[in-house]
Amino acid sequence: MGVPSAALLADLRRRIGALERGCGRSATPAIAFGLPAIDALLPGGGLGAHGLHEIVAASGDGAAFGFVLALFSRFAHGVRRPWILWCRLGREGQESGLPYGPGLARFGLAPEHLILVEAERPAEVLAAMEEGLRCPELAAVLGEGAALPFVAGLRLQRTAETGGVAALWLNRAPPPPASAAVSRWQVQAVAAPPEGVEEALSWQLTLWRCRGKNENLPCQWRIGWRAEERSFALQDG
C-alpha cells in the first residue's frame, strides 16, 4: 500500500466529520452568542443549526419568551432567512400567552415572519417541528410544551442534524435529567436595579448541560440584550 492520497484523506475527513455531526463540524456555521465566555463552551462555538437546544423556563413569566426571541433575532440575522416556525399546543395561548406583535419589534423581528402552529395534541407539535426542520427556508423551529420525552428529543435531534435549521425546545415544565439535546439552558428573570432603566432586558442564564462538556457545569451568566445591535452583553451580577 502506498502513501494515502490527498483525496483519500479528504474523503476520510469528510466521513469522520459526518459521523461527528451535531458537534458543530458542519457546513452551516453555528450562531454565536457573541460572548466569548459562553461561545467557548459550546460545540462549534455557538448555538447551531444542526442540533436541538432545550430552554427551561424557570419562572412563570416572559423571561424565557424574551430570550428565545432574542435568539431568533440572531439566528434570522445570522443565516439571512427571516422565517420562524413556532409550534405549540393551542391552549398555550392562554397559559403563556401569544407572541404579541407590538412587543416583538424590540427584538428586531417582524411579527409576520413568525408562523404559529397551534396543535391539539403533543404528537402533532412534534410532527410539525420535524417537518419544519426539513424546510430549508426557515431560520429556526421552536417547540413549546411540557418536558420533551427522550425519544422525541432524539428524533428531533437527528432531524436537526441533517437540516440546516436551528431547533429549540422551550420547556414549560421541569425537564427529566435524560435528554438527547445538544444543550440545556435555563432562563430566569433578573430583578432590575432600583435605579436601572425599566425597559432594559436582562436574564440570568444557566447552562446545565452541553454535549462534549461535562466538567464545570452548570455555569451561570447574567446577560442583557441590546436591541439596536442585536447582540447580547455580559453583565456582572
Partner: peptide, 28 residues
Amino acid sequence: EAAGENLTALVDRLRNRLGRGRVSQIFV
C-alpha cells in the same frame, strides 16, 4: 421577504393536517 416554495408547501401540509385556523401568521 416573500415565502418561497418550500415554506409554502410546508404551511399547506400543516394546514391541511391541522386545520386552516391552526397555522397562522402574526400581523400588527
